[in-house]
């Protein structure tokens, strides 16, 4: 019960406050911008045709209604919250009348699948390889790994992505250039294997950089663990190396790394802009880029809200999981 009162409850409150402030800012910032989306939409609609003044006024009024720009700032704010809580983010400006919720709903699974898998794979790979290299710094494979990954790490991501794209779709056309899948969606072998086939290159491009980063972190952390008293003691007691690496070294380097994992999983909701654009992958990042290009405010706001809620929730979940990972947190 004290665990709930002293640990869980304050964090729940914190989560509510963060989301409240984030959503409020998302509401306020576009309204402080000098660009009026109604004028823009009107401009777009009336660019190639003239409307009667009555029709223009009616159109303006219905756009105000639709975008929630009617009434005082406060009543707009109350309405805005009402719509956010109902999950109604309004129509997309550029793909009217499809709603933002619908469009995000269809894009998000691509992003979650691609980024979720590649993040988890890169994290696990980097963590284990880094810990092994940190625990056995004098082995030849540890030096080869370190030199390779440290050289790869500083290469800008878009260069890695373009190199992969050129190598494997142009010079050696093994992988497809754009798209997310082939054939009708369903639990068929051909559809599922096409998911892997289309997702492989974008995932690989993400995994390379993320693994290098995780490797460097994990190696540094494991290097300090290696000289700790409990690892030395376990070594003198001749515990098997495998046990020492996994249960003594990695287990103790986990806490900061689990935080990182959760935060990068939360960042999934922002989409992987460059990846999805370079590989023509139909995810959130691609959607966001199009929305920005088309001044699709509702869509931009929708994706922003999603990432606020996503990151706040992920942080809450990490906090709630800490006691499971580090027993010392349990009895603060």
């Amino acid at each position: 019960m004290t665990l709930f009162k002293e640990y869980i409850f304050p964090r729940l409150i914190q989560w509510v406050i963060v989301i409240f402030i984030g959503v409020s800012l998302t509401f306020l910032i576009p309204r402080m911008s000098p660009i009026n989306p109604i004028d823009q939409a009107m401009g777009r609609l009336t660019a190639f045709q003239t409307l009667s003044p009555e029709a223009t006024l009616a159109l303006r009024q219905s756009l105000m209604d639709l975008y929630g720009l009617d009434g005082s700032l406060f009543s707009q704010y109350v309405n805005f919250w009402g719509r956010v809580l109902r999950g109604d983010l309004g129509p997309s400006f550029s793909a009217f009348p499809t709603t933002v919720t619908e469009m995000i709903g269809s894009a998000i699974w691509w992003t979650i699948g691609l980024l979720g898998l590649s993040t988890v794979i890169a994290w696990t790979l980097g963590l284990v390889l880094g810990a092994l290299a940190g625990y056995f710094p004098d082995r030849w494979w540890s030096k080869v790994l370190e030199n390779t990954l440290v050289s790869i790490y500083p290469i800008p991501y878009y260069i890695v992505a373009f190199i992969l794209l050129m190598l494997f779709t142009y010079y050696l056309p093994i992988f497809p250039l754009v798209g997310g899948s082939r054939g009708a969606p369903g639990f068929s072998w051909s559809y599922l294997s096409s998911l892997v086939y289309y997702g492989f290159l974008p995932a690989l491009s993400l995994v390379i950089g993320a693994t290098a980063f995780r490797f460097i972190m994990s190696k540094a952390l494991a290097g300090t663990e290696r000289t700790s008293d409990y690892v030395r003691f376990a070594e003198i007691a001749a515990l098997p190396k495998r046990k020492i690496v996994f249960r003594y070294v990695i287990r103790n380097t986990m806490l900061p790394q689990v935080t990182d994992l959760a935060l990068s999983l939360a960042a999934i909701f922002e989409g992987a802009l460059i990846t999805e654009v370079v590989f023509g992958y139909p995810g959130l990042g691609y959607l966001l880029l199009n929305a920005i290009n088309a001044s699709d405010y509702n869509m931009i706001m929708g994706i922003t809200l999603l990432s606020i809620v996503g990151i706040a929730t992920a942080s809450l979940l990490i906090d709630l999981c800490y006691p499971l990972i580090d027993p010392r947190v349990r009895y603060r």
Binding site: A237, L239, P240, Y248, R251
Partner: peptide, 25 residues
Amino acid sequence: PQGSMHVLNPVRRIGDTFHDFISTH
């Protein structure tokens, strides 16, 4: 060992540490 403050793995229960050490031998 010298000083027992840090010779026990902080994230393992005492019983697990004993099991690690005993079952090795």
